[in-house]
Amino acid sequence: MPYSLQGKRILLTHADRFMGPALQQTLQAEGAEVIASSDALLEESEPADLIARSGEIDVLLANLALPAPSTPAGEVSEEEWREAFATLVDPLPRLCRAVLPQMQSRGHGKILVMGSASALRGMKRVSTYSAARGAQLAYVQALGVEVAGQNIQVNAIAQNFVDNPTYFPESVQENPRFQERLKREVPLGRLVSADEDCSFAAFLCSDAANHFVGQVFPVCGGWVQR
């Protein structure tokens, strides 16, 4: 392999959802020790507690997810908005604040956020979800350039049309209307496989990717521009 994760300790959040199961499998296959956490991380103290329990880690892989609401913007409730930000946004700076001191002390470390390309273009009926995912990406870009000089790389994958059980379960993939949508909107004509996505994430977790800082990498099979 052009890169190795041998000996790397990687903390994976929300390991039971979104890309979590596939990421754990790929990272372990590449030699990493994966600390797989399914903690909800909704309480203010949970992220710091998780970092403390995990000990020394080389990579924080912030995989945060909740089912995307499909509410028209004018009907979005306070509860929906708060839930999205409490699940997708609030844990991120808390995790980073807790893990950065050890990375700064060692002089190296990585943070990779598994995000969504819904923040990169306008999409109907996903204003809440897109706003929360957009906040993740903005945070990554700002933090990435701030800590780059300390040999800490912070980046994000902004994905859509990637095979995963949270957003594209079998029931969706088998729907003829969804299959037609893939042909219409995605040049690949198919979902990006979990293996393809997770292999790229594994590369970004490796020392071979030390030159990427504050970057947002779209992984979405190519969108047809409209």
Results as ranks from 00 to 15, higher is better:
A135P: 02
S127I: 08
M103A: 12
R97E: 07
G107H: 00
H108V: 06
Q136G: 06
P101W: 06
V113M: 04
V99R: 13
G115P: 12
L120N: 01
V113S: 13
V126G: 03
K124L: 14
I111D: 09
L120E: 08
L92E: 10
Y129C: 13
R97N: 13
T87G: 00
V126S: 05
K124C: 02
V126K: 10
C96R: 04
M114I: 13
D90E: 15
R133Y: 09
G115K: 07
L137P: 04
P93Q: 11
G107S: 03
R125F: 14
Q104N: 09
P101H: 04
T87Y: 00
A119S: 14
A119W: 01
Q102H: 09
M123F: 12
L88C: 03
R121Q: 06
R125G: 03
A86C: 12
K124A: 13
L95P: 12
A131E: 02
M114N: 05
S118H: 11
G134E: 04
K110P: 11
L100H: 09
L92R: 07
A98H: 13
G107M: 07
Q104A: 15
R121E: 11
A135D: 00
A86P: 06
A132F: 01
M114E: 12
M123C: 10
T87S: 06
A131H: 00
G122R: 05
R94V: 07
M103D: 13
L137Y: 00
L100C: 11
A132T: 05
G109K: 07
T128L: 05
G122T: 13
L137E: 09
G134D: 00
A135N: 01
S127R: 01
K110A: 12
R133S: 01
L95Q: 06
A98I: 00
G109Y: 04
M103W: 15
R121C: 05
V89A: 14
R106G: 02
A138Y: 04
R97Q: 10
A131S: 13
L100R: 06
Q136P: 04
Q102C: 03
M123K: 11
I111E: 13
G134Y: 01
D90A: 14
L120W: 01
A131D: 03
Q102G: 15
S116L: 02
G109T: 03
R94W: 10
S118L: 14
